[in-house]
Amino acid sequence: MTGMIHKFSQNGYYIVLDVNSGAVHVVDEVFYKMLDLVQPPFAGDCPEALYAAFPEISREEIGEYYSELRELYEAEQLYSPDYYDDLAGKMISAPVKAMCLHVAHDCNLRCRYCFASTGDFGGTRTMMPVEIGKMAIDYLIKYSGSRHNLELDFFGGEPTMNFELVKEVVRYARSLEKAHNKNFRFTITTNGILLDDDKIDFINKEMFNVVLSVDGRKEVNDRVRARVDGSGCYDSMMPKFKRLVEKRGDGQYYVRGTFTKFNKDFAEDVLHLNQEGFDQISVEPVVADPNLDYALTWDDLPEVFAEYERLAKILLERKKTGTGFNFFHFMLDLDQGPCAVKRLKGCGCGNEYVAVTPDGDVYPCHQFVGHEEWKMGSVLDLSIDEKKKEMFVHSSVLDKPECKKCWAKFYCSGGCNANNMQYARNILTPYTLACEMEKKRLECAIMIKAALDEWSTEG
């Protein structure tokens, strides 16, 4: 039941987040410092220690500060109680509503940081047969119960290497929507090399969202995103991405890049992508073995943090002049967002979300594919390992002791179970390097909200 706050100062703003209510307060410097000196329950009169701590401020004004602090506390907007253990009963085995379909375990690129071992996930290079794709749809319908909205992501490897299957699976799923009262939302992630007008038109007609993989500046991109012969891919894919986005109109898309130790000035890559005409941008830190030359390590964090703050300031200036763009990880809905249950559950991998390999094997998510011990079923015999599913049911924030104590838990939802497994050897133990970057991004996102609020008030 204990309340929790997180306070930080950035870009001249003093900000206090009340963790359990989600309230965000922009305060002045005295109020900010005062929070270090007093603890709830804030009963009775202003403590003498506060008067003594600020001798330059009149007793009357200090009393005013304290009464504002008490008012927030009593309104449950500061140190508000943690009722969330009451939701533990809602962490149950749920219908499967999202599926990652690995239509190709092969790729025409050999990106150095690829978690999928450059496309084959550590196995043989294979394509999913159409029949397996259709069985996957049957599997999703069977295990989705009464869920209406279903998501299917065409993934790889490189999914455009098996595009006829993509078309067939979409047609098949659409043919079943009405009879089963389902709404399929298709998405696709592509490196763009094989895009042509036929594929672009199909994607723009059928895909609810599309992710276009590019890392930013040509020299940055081509250093790590190389073809099989070692040559870069930037010049080939960028015109195709531009054409897709131009023809897509208002449809959702993201250009999505990875930054590594080689480009800790990644704000330049974000700006480059915007300069090239994209306004929906995500550039994210690589997750890699710390011994690799491109991996980000704890030593890199000060530079990465400074760059996030620099990007936040640039984005603010751009929004001010009407030339803003969306940077994925600085987007935050402070007024509503998802429900508390969703925030505690997170991605739902292994419970509401599964991945299917070209052979029809079912895994908790795309990041677990290739790790045989995590296989949890097959679309061939419509099987699912309920014991494994139950393990993921109990991998919510409430089950992660470190996460329960963290101020960011309702925004990151316990992080990525696959990364936890890979780097902390336990799905319930957070991969703390990623946590630190997530927390910095959240602080930047909240600061942007504070600054925009100030400007709109002044404007």
Binding site: S21, A23, V24, H25, V27, L334, D453
Partner: peptide, 12 residues
């Protein structure tokens, strides 16, 4: 409030 501005309606 004089020293605090709350930005949002604030999740449940």
């Amino acid at each position: 409030m004089k020293h605090v501005k709350t930005l949002n309606k604030a999740m449940k």
